[in-house]
Design a protein around this nucleic acid. Structure first.
Length: 509
RNA sequence: GGGCGUGUAGCUCAAUGGUAGAGCAGUGGCCUUUUAAGCCAUUGGUUCAGAGUUCGAGUCUCUGCACGCUCACCA
């Protein structure tokens, strides 16, 4: 029972709720009204103020009570609505003893109120609503964490705010209600996705949706979640990427497609990894990875400009400029300069491993050549790519869906984009030769035969699709959560996901 | 999964192994232009859970749980 979990504070509120009902007031009325948001009301008043013979601005505002200052026959409150806050001014002369008592005896911080009246300016200069009538819209039984805002020189200083990360993520509704700057993160997130969509829509891409429940997973090297369809007696995987389905659409003649959605990877959780995360992938017929590179930097800069009004962001203490062109580093050259190893001189895993050991570089024993190169990237390059950087020309054996570089069988036309020391995107000239693709699947199978984590299952229907002919194309994937981290300057992916994954608790407080 | 750290009132935090406290919030008063409103009074605790050491544990030990940081794997 909810009521049994109530603290003393909550019991006090419950008593007020009962008292409201006893007074014939519905604490949760069905109808409500909001003629102006706080900002619209304030703007309207400020406008009218500038004119001579302005008519009074009649407003019905609605929102959550964030502060309440009772002063006997006077009262001030601030309510919070979707675009800000508004001060309410109550006076017994206007409301009468009975109505005033309703406010003082039944209302608490956190309650939703609807208030009507005219806009005015207080002696201290704050544009406020002079309340003529008000009603309870929703009684709050649990107290919101007490937070008070102090304005010093225009800066808002928040006292004793809710800061425990566990409570903030587990009860995000409280976090959002109390820490309004958290709302801004998710407004930015929403705007970012809209901007990415607009950018691609304007270039004739169509947005599609492909299966999340898949009989065969693929398109990335990751462990999947497994689920089960009861009626069909069939195990299914939650997708780890969109790639193989989107390429089927290229076969079908949809030349420019993209999808924004959720991927699921059954792996470790960290400040940049959540088990489910949002990805954008696009596939572009008659393009190659160099064209994709140019489009990608343009897209990110467009989104930044549209959402933030600038291409300059601050992340982890670094000022980062997202404006194109981004730095381009050829992988072989990059590793040579950073680690002093020329990977071309080490065509086998054994040789490369020896070169790394000679330099005391840690690595997983038994790795493939590509994996070793990946280790070098992670150790020597990725952390140093603070400004946007494309690293291009990847080893073939860790890129089973990318097309080989003409004249260089060990290398594929693939690039990854890094910003703030973090991998942000991955792209390549898409392999469209069904026979080569089959060969790659077989190679992966052989190379990782002993390693369940790296299984890359053969997708026969995908090969079948390629056999019907897929136009040459460039493909691209970007982690939307990480992009939002950059745009909002948040160092943890949990800050930009509304309900990040947490372990379950036995007893919820 | 490994290492380090944290867990005390609704929130933010104190408390040499010796009576668990403060501010805000709450409750009762006073207050007709306040804005971290103010003044007076006051309530509120399974100190994450369990076991142990001790005359005595919020504090020390062990186990478990959750969260954070970090390493490994991945995006």
């Amino acid at each position: 029972m909810l009521e049994e979990s109530f603290s003393e504070l909550e019991q006090a509120r419950l008593k007020k709720l009962r008292a409201l009902e006893a007074a014939g007031i519905d604490p949760y009325p069905t109808r409500s009204e909001q003629t102006h948001t706080s900002q619209v009301a304030i703007d309207a008043f400020v406008n009218a103020e500038a004119q001579t013979e302005a008519r009074p601005i009649q407003v019905t505002a609605a929102g959550r009570i964030r502060s309440l200052r009772l002063m006997g026959k006077l009262a001030f409150a601030h309510i919070q609505d979707r675009d800000g806050g508004l001060q309410l001014f109550f006076r017994v002369n206007d409301l009468g003893e009975e109505k005033m008592a309703e406010l003082t005896s039944f209302y608490d911080l956190g309650d939703f109120i609807q208030a009507s009246g005219t806009m005015f300016r207080t002696k201290r200069g704050e544009v406020s609503l002079h309340v003529e009538d008000f009603k309870m819209l929703a009684k709050t039984l649990r107290p919101l964490p007490a937070a008070k805002d102090e304005v010093v020189d225009g800066e808002i200083i928040r006292h004793a705010t809710l800061s425990d990360p566990e409570t903030r993520y587990r009860q995000r509704y409280v976090d959002l209600a109390v820490n309004t700057e958290v709302q801004e993160i998710f407004k930015t997130r929403s705007a970012t996705i809209r901007a990415l969509q607009k950018f691609l829509d304007d270039r004739d891409f169509i947005e599609v949706e492909t299966p999340i429940l898949q009989p065969i997973y693929g398109g990335a090297a990751a462990q999947p979640f497994i689920t089960h369809h009861n009626q069909l007696h069939q195990d299914l995987y939650l997708r780890i990427s969109f790639e193989l389905y989107l390429k089927r659409l290229l076969v079908g003649g949809l030349e420019r497609v993209y999808e924004i959605g959720r991927d699921f990877r059954n792996e470790g959780v960290s400040y940049k990894h959540n088990p489910e995360f949002t990805q954008l992938e696009f596939y572009w017929a008659y393009a190659d990875y160099l064209m994709v590179m140019a489009l990608a930097e343009e897209m990110v800069a467009f989104a930044a400009e549209k959402v933030l009004g600038t291409t300059i962001v601050t992340f982890n203490g670094n000022e980062i400029n997202l404006a194109p062109p981004w730095k381009r580093v050829e992988l072989r050259q990059g590793i040579l300069e950073a680690a002093g190893i020329d990977i071309n001189e080490h065509p086998t895993a054994e040789s490369l491993q020896m070169a790394m050991e000679a330099r005391q570089i840690k690595h997983k024993p038994g790795s493939t050549r590509g994996k070793l190169i990946d280790t070098l990237i992670g150790d020597f390059l990725e952390p140093n790519f603070i400004q946007p950087t494309f690293l291009y020309n990847y080893p073939r054996d860790i890129s089973p869906l990318a097309k080989s570089k003409p004249g260089d069988p060990m290398v594929v036309e693939r690039f990854e984009g890094f910003i703030g020391g973090m991998e942000l995107c991955n792209a390549f000239s898409e392999l469209n030769d069904p026979l080569d693709q089959e060969q790659r699947f077989i190679e992966m199978d052989r190379a990782y035969a002993d390693d369940d984590e790296e299984q890359h299952p053969m997708d026969d229907d995908f090969l079948n699709a390629l056999s019907y002919g897929m136009p040459p194309a460039g493909g691209f994937g970007i982690g939307v959560d990480r992009l939002v981290m950059l745009f909002t300057g948040r160092r943890s992916i949990r800050e930009v996901i509304l309900f990040p994954h947490l372990r379950t608790q036995d007893s919820e407080a």
